[in-house]
Amino acid sequence: TGLPGVPGWPARLARLALAVGLRLLELGVALEAHGQNLLVVLSPSGEPLRLVYRDLADIRVSPARLARNGIRVPDLPARIVTDDERALRRKLFGSLVAGALAGTVGSGPGLRAALEPAVRELPRTGELAALCGGPVPAKALTLMRLSPGGAGDRWTELPNPLEVARF
């Protein structure tokens, strides 16, 4: 699968998106990188060149991670600020892997085919290990919409197409 005339496009998109998303997460910023927020800039031949992120309203920012990386913590709304690793990882992994990438390349075999070569090329970090080592979080959008009394994200977990692979 992919764009006509651009073999391996899904893996290149996955590598670009994961490299950016995981690096920002390590620094202390978890993007909500779903398909409406993450725009891909393509070369004239159809290669993914860079990403444009369009909405900062639902990101999560970790003051502890920022401080560890020598970055001053900006004045942010309280709902954006968290040092909860699970919340940070859910925000990125759920939106990027279960959202944008799965929506672009398909779930199951298509997602695995895009992720495997991308993951092999990425630096080995704790965040990459977390991504590869357990279920993939996914927003339970129907539950969120049918739960008017509860604000915030609701999550479920999906089988991880990378969990059985050893990277």
Results as ranks from 00 to 15, higher is better:
139 K>W: 07
85 E>I: 06
24 L>K: 01
51 L>N: 13
82 T>W: 12
14 A>I: 13
109 P>I: 06
90 R>Q: 14
119 V>W: 14
32 E>I: 04
64 A>R: 15
77 P>K: 02
130 A>S: 10
16 L>Q: 06
89 R>T: 03
132 C>V: 11
21 G>Y: 15
102 A>Y: 14
29 V>P: 00
42 L>M: 08
16 L>K: 07
112 R>S: 09
39 L>W: 13
85 E>R: 08
103 G>V: 07
152 G>R: 11
128 L>Q: 11
90 R>P: 03
167 F>S: 00
118 A>C: 03
45 S>H: 11
91 K>P: 00
119 V>T: 05
5 G>M: 12
50 R>G: 01
82 T>R: 08
147 S>K: 00
131 L>A: 08
25 L>G: 01
12 R>H: 07
35 G>M: 06
15 R>V: 04
4 P>T: 11
85 E>A: 09
85 E>M: 06
90 R>K: 07
31 L>V: 08
41 V>L: 07
115 L>Q: 06
47 E>L: 15
50 R>K: 00
139 K>P: 02
160 N>Q: 09
147 S>L: 12
74 P>T: 13
114 A>D: 04
126 G>Y: 02
62 S>N: 05
144 M>G: 04
93 F>T: 00
158 L>M: 10
48 P>I: 05
98 A>Y: 14
161 P>G: 10
107 S>C: 00
126 G>F: 00
26 E>I: 10
74 P>K: 07
86 R>H: 03
123 P>W: 14
50 R>Q: 00
30 A>W: 12
34 H>N: 02
22 L>R: 02
120 R>G: 02
55 D>S: 11
69 N>D: 05
70 G>D: 11
32 E>L: 03
76 L>K: 06
36 Q>C: 04
49 L>G: 03
99 G>L: 06
55 D>K: 04
20 V>R: 10
83 D>T: 09
109 P>F: 10
108 G>N: 09
112 R>K: 12
34 H>V: 02
25 L>Y: 00
53 Y>G: 01
111 L>T: 12
46 G>M: 13
41 V>H: 09
161 P>D: 14
46 G>W: 08
98 A>N: 05
104 T>C: 07
67 A>D: 14
27 L>V: 15
2 G>T: 09
75 D>V: 05
41 V>M: 06
118 A>G: 03
101 L>A: 10
60 R>M: 14
167 F>V: 08
128 L>N: 11
80 I>W: 03
75 D>Q: 13
20 V>H: 14
44 P>W: 15
97 V>N: 14
60 R>G: 04
25 L>A: 01
27 L>A: 13
